[in-house]
Simulated assay, not measured.
Amino acid sequence: MKLYYSPGACSLASHIILNEINVDFDLERVDLSTHITEKGKDFYSINAKGYVPALEINPGLILTENVAILPFLAQHDPKQDLIPPSGLGRAKVLEWLGYLNSELHDAYAVFFAAKLQLNEEEKQRGYATLDKVLTYIENYLGESDFDYLVNDNFGPADAYLFVLTNWSKVVQHDLSAFKNILALRKKVAVRQSVQIAMRDEGLIP
């Protein structure tokens, strides 16, 4: 398999799960400003949507969108810990991936998609939207008896939440009020799969 990625982008979640399942895979970096890969390919010829992640499963067979890639990869976990094979447990993973993708990812995307720099009023509106979504997750974690989002096992939703909330530093958004989210982030950050992925993408020394 090959993962097309951009450092620190949402493709980092797929990179983490690839490390978790311990399979051989290649990485190819994409410059999202030019849409040219590090090997000189036109990324639009690989993924016409133009954004990462894109997972090449076999030559010419491409899967896109984290909500599809993450459960696809997680089901290859030899320990069967990352995602339940069926039933309500699997549905809860998909529920969280859908929420993170449609609500939290979109809330951060406002800061990255602006053609012009956001003015202070627009920034504050963006922060308010982020806080609203994060407050839901914070309260859920506070009421949950689980170690992670879905159950007591680390899974794709935890990887995705970790990657998205990394962006708070980039957009100068304060996470200090979200103690439960920070606690979960701390657990995720020390995983070997995360450390390796972030090192490979040049995000940490």
Rank of each mutant, 00 (worst) to 15 (best):
111 F>L: 03
166 N>P: 01
15 H>P: 06
6 S>N: 05
4 Y>M: 10
167 W>R: 07
93 V>W: 13
117 Q>T: 13
190 V>E: 13
5 Y>V: 11
79 K>Y: 08
187 K>F: 13
182 L>E: 12
35 H>E: 06
49 K>M: 05
132 K>N: 08
163 V>R: 00
204 I>A: 02
75 Q>V: 08
68 A>Y: 01
90 R>D: 01
86 S>Y: 15
54 A>Q: 12
16 I>W: 03
107 A>F: 11
36 I>G: 02
143 E>K: 14
60 G>T: 02
83 I>D: 03
125 R>H: 12
102 S>Q: 14
7 P>N: 04
48 A>P: 08
114 A>E: 13
59 P>F: 00
52 V>I: 13
82 L>V: 04
88 L>G: 00
133 V>W: 05
35 H>V: 12
128 A>M: 13
109 A>I: 07
50 G>F: 04
189 A>L: 12
2 K>T: 13
74 A>V: 04
134 L>C: 13
2 K>A: 04
155 G>W: 00
137 I>S: 06
192 Q>I: 15
93 V>S: 04
33 S>V: 13
15 H>R: 02
131 D>S: 15
100 L>M: 02
140 Y>S: 02
182 L>Q: 04
82 L>M: 10
144 S>E: 03
165 T>Y: 08
178 F>Y: 11
91 A>F: 07
134 L>P: 05
62 I>Y: 03
119 N>K: 07
106 D>R: 15
133 V>F: 14
125 R>K: 12
8 G>K: 00
124 Q>V: 11
166 N>R: 14
131 D>L: 06
164 L>H: 05
35 H>K: 11
95 E>K: 00
147 D>G: 08
153 N>M: 15
142 G>I: 08
135 T>I: 14
23 V>Q: 06
29 R>P: 04
166 N>F: 08
98 G>S: 10
58 N>Q: 14
92 K>F: 02
148 Y>H: 12
168 S>K: 01
185 R>W: 00
145 D>C: 07
101 N>W: 01
41 K>W: 04
97 L>N: 02
155 G>H: 11
146 F>D: 08
71 P>I: 10
98 G>Y: 10
86 S>A: 15
72 F>K: 08
163 V>Q: 04
73 L>F: 00
139 N>W: 13
126 G>T: 11
152 D>E: 15
153 N>G: 05
17 I>E: 01
175 L>W: 08
146 F>R: 12
126 G>E: 09
44 Y>C: 12
186 K>S: 07
70 L>A: 05
136 Y>V: 10
167 W>N: 12
110 V>D: 09
193 S>V: 11
83 I>R: 06
195 Q>I: 13
17 I>W: 01
54 A>E: 02
57 I>R: 14
142 G>D: 15
202 G>R: 09
155 G>Y: 09
125 R>W: 05
142 G>P: 10
204 I>C: 09
124 Q>C: 15
149 L>W: 01
187 K>L: 14
124 Q>G: 00
